[in-house]
């Protein structure tokens, strides 16, 4: 029981990070039907941007931790958004409406480019950040094992919930969200009705990247270290989460992220830490075999 609760907390924290990245995948897939393979690396770039701004503010300007983190969050979202905007503009937009595999290959190329760019400009070593929020709140003690929730875990979950609320509002209630949903249904028709399709798609990429940047901030907060190759595995898992939840569905992406996080931590705790990724991928395969459109995905009606 006590191990279970502790792993539940850890899993939800990890799942929040996956969920935030997964939203970027699912939104882009929803709107242009493309798997943005470079999204995991955009997340990694976001983590590096956050790292550099954090160091800049805390070591050069001597800011306190909390205001520095707030500013880092905002700057990270802005600059990572700019990166993803530029990526979409250069590598995907010219290929829109073309052969389906061309943007996928372009995205894979972008992913290789981004991780190696960071390797070249920031060096191949792990970049540590000073530990922050090391305290934790003990919840209860059972059988001599104290279940605790760390400050950073609280921070991660709170930020995730707040962001999801803001995000949900944007997608459901604003004209931007309406334009996005219109483009998802039919881009040509949306354009005929005066929706600026290019701009809507660009903003979708920016929003996805902003959420990935937040995930990046959380990642360095949680793990205290980031490396140029850290984009791939969380990226694949977040994509798995998006597919698990039903690609194209926003609540599905969050649900999928939480599930993947939970599967991973629970498996590590109860079975074997070595096979935690195998477990996550196997469950993905099993779910898709029985629920081919994911948990919350709309069933695909085969039109004859």
């Amino acid at each position: 029981m006590e191990v279970f609760v502790q792993q539940l907390i850890n899993g939800l924290t990890l799942g929040s990070i996956y969920g935030l990245i997964a939203i970027g995948y699912t939104m882009v897939f929803g709107i242009i039907g493309m798997v943005n393979f470079a999204h995991g690396d955009v997340f990694m770039v976001g983590a590096f941007i956050a790292l550099i701004f954090f160091l800049l503010l805390s070591t050069w300007f001597g800011w306190a931790l909390i205001p520095a983190l707030m500013i880092v969050l905002v700057l990270g979202m802005v600059f990572t958004g700019l990166w993803n905007w530029a990526i979409e503009r250069v590598a995907y937009r010219p290929l829109r409406g073309s052969f389906r595999l061309a943007p996928l290959i372009s995205a894979i190329g972008m992913s290789i480019f981004l991780s190696n760019l960071i390797q070249v400009v920031q060096g191949p070593r792990n970049k540590p950040v000073p530990p922050m929020f090391t305290q934790s709140v003990p919840l209860f003690t059972e059988n001599g094992y104290t279940v605790a929730i760390g400050y950073k875990q609280i921070a991660i979950m709170v930020i995730t919930v707040v962001l999801l609320a803001v995000f949900w509002y944007i997608v459901q209630k604003t004209s931007l969200g309406r334009a996005q949903r219109a483009c998802e249904q039919d881009q040509k028709m949306a354009a005929l009705l005066g929706v600026d399709v290019d701009k809507t798609i660009s903003l979708t990429f920016v929003m996805g990247a902003a959420l990935a940047a937040v995930a990046g901030v959380m990642y360095i907060m949680y793990y205290g270290v980031v490396n140029f190759s850290d984009g791939f595995v969380p990226g694949v898992k977040a994509f798995t989460a998006a597919v698990l939840g039903g690609i194209g569905s926003l609540p599905g992406a969050v649900l999928g992220g939480l599930l993947i996080g939970l599967i991973e931590t629970m498996w590590s705790a109860y079975f074997s830490i070595d096979y935690k990724d195998v477990a996550a991928f196997s469950i993905l395969a099993i779910v898709l075999v029985f629920l081919p459109t994911g948990i919350l995905g709309r069933p695909e009606v085969e039109k004859v």
Partner: peptide, 14 residues
């Protein structure tokens, strides 16, 4: 090497 390789993949697709 891989930096150029990734960029080349993008450019070739474009």
């Amino acid at each position: 090497r891989m930096l150029i390789f990734g960029l080349a993949m993008v450019l070739m697709m474009l």
